Amino acid sequence: MPTALVRRPSPRLADGLVTHIERTPVDADLAVRQWQAYVDALEATGWTTVEVPAIDECPDGVFIEDTMVVYDDLAVIARSGAEERRPESAAAAKTVEGLGYRLTDITEPGTLDGGDVLKIGSTVYVGQGGRTNEEGIRQLRDALAPLGTDVRAVPVRKVLHLKSAVTALPDGTVIGYEPLVDDPAAFDRFRPVPEVAGSHVVLLGEDRLLMAASAPKSAELFEQLGYKPVVVDISEFEKLEGCVTCLSVRLRR
């Protein structure tokens, strides 16, 4: 059964980092309800969720995907390019280790955020930009090499993370809102979508795509392609450059 790590939002969520968009007020109470609806959507589609201990002192802790990169039985524990986010990784690492995964760490001077990593089969795209540096990518490449991966660095300048710009459909096609994608040609197959939030999908299995309510035109496009959107409202997390991918770590073995 597929498993997802999640972490409850901090009461300080509204103080989270914002880099590429203007700050707007965040309703922390609504965010908690939206987070629960996100968890419920995962569980309703056959996923088991494992809650990592909350870290209330870190406003961005809910964006748990940034704490690690998981491939096969290995969890590469990230070292965020945002120093204030680095404490978020410890409890997440302990949790995934308790589920039977091997651990390795990104170490100084390397930086890596999990949100910069897009896995498509054995190809692993890594966004090099504000949060992930060249040394972090080198360390990730070395860690994943024994597992037969092809790690490819791609530029990220227009958005916070690579997966702020692109994710992938079940057939491996990379999707993104083209004005925010630095180099569409970096991907083997690329399909533009009509909305920013349409760039972000979580693959739930059986052609189901978890995606945000703020991308109805993209949902219609995916339906036309034969996929089944599972729509959640994550408006309060979008105000902090969050999306459906960064609210969980998906584990499949």
Rank of each mutant, 00 (worst) to 15 (best):
M1Y: 11
P2H: 10
P2E: 15
A4E: 01
P9V: 01
L13G: 06
A14P: 01
E22Q: 12
T24N: 09
Q34D: 09
Q34S: 04
L42M: 06
E43T: 05
T45F: 02
T45P: 00
V50P: 02
E51Y: 01
P53G: 07
I55R: 11
V62Y: 08
V62K: 03
I64G: 01
V69Q: 08
A75E: 09
A90S: 12
A91S: 15
A93F: 03
K94D: 15
T95N: 05
G100H: 09
I106V: 15
I106M: 12
G110C: 10
G114W: 08
G114Q: 10
L118D: 03
K119W: 03
T123A: 14
R131H: 06
E134Q: 14
E135F: 04
I137V: 15
Q139E: 08
Q139P: 07
R141C: 07
L147T: 06
G148Q: 11
V151T: 10
V166S: 06
V166W: 07
I175N: 05
Y177N: 01
Y177W: 06
E178Y: 00
E178S: 00
A186D: 02
R189C: 00
R189G: 00
S199R: 05
S199W: 03
A212E: 15
F222M: 12
G226A: 13
K228I: 08
P229M: 15
V230I: 13
V231W: 00
V232A: 06
E236H: 03
E238Q: 14
K239Q: 07
V244K: 04
V244E: 01
C246Y: 01
S248Q: 05
S248C: 09
R250I: 13
R250M: 13
L251M: 02
L251R: 02
R253A: 13
